[in-house]
């Protein structure tokens, strides 16, 4: 599915990853436009429900971006998020949706180029996986949107 353009939702903690995205902007680095960033106060705020609902509504991939271990503004937000992401991955396997569609990354505020790299890698990976099984045979074939 080479011309398939996946929609990927990225929940970014406002302290480090969101700043890293801005830094990637300041450095004018290019990465694919499939990533749609939603700002949250801390990665620990990303509820399991948000991730599942994203997939249910048609996301082909979801990224939860947190600060580096030890850097979390709220001490343990990123660790709790990591635990939640691995739990949801198992639940998705049960549902029959590939677990790697959900990805957990950790970034510091200065890592502009790491953010761009991550965005490119995730988009490629999801593109290879193809559209989410939930989108495959819902009513109208999803017209090419990104």
């Amino acid at each position: 599915m080479e011309n398939f353009e996946p929609i990927i939702v990225a929940f970014c903690c406002q302290y480090c990853p969101y700043t890293a995205a801005d830094t990637a902007g300041t450095q004018r680095l290019c990465y694919p436009a499939n990533l749609k960033i939603i700002r949250v106060p801390c990665a620990g705020k990303v509820d399991a429900m948000h991730i599942l609902k994203a997939f249910e509504k048609g996301a082909d991939g979801v990224v939860v971006a947190a600060c580096l271990e030890g850097d979390c503004h709220f001490e343990t937000g990123n660790i709790k998020a990591a635990r939640r992401v691995s739990y949801i991955k198992k639940l998705m396997e049960e549902i029959g949706v590939e677990g790697e569609r959900l990805e957990m990354v950790m970034l510091s505020a200065g890592m502009g180029d790491r953010f761009a790299e991550m965005a490119t890698e995730v988009t490629e990976k999801i593109r290879k996986l193809g559209p989410s099984p939930i989108n495959l045979n819902t009513s109208s074939q999803k017209q090419e949107a990104c």
């Binding site: 399991a48 429900m49 599942l52 609902k53 997939f55 249910e56 639940l91 049960e94 549902i95 029959g96 949706v97 099984p133 939930i134 495959l136 045979n137 819902t138």
Partner: peptide, 15 residues
């Protein structure tokens, strides 16, 4: 909420 969403997705997979 989680189970509802999971069930909906599981059946959506089968159309």
């Amino acid at each position: 909420g989680l189970l509802a969403s999971a069930l909906k997705m599981a059946f959506a997979k089968e159309g």
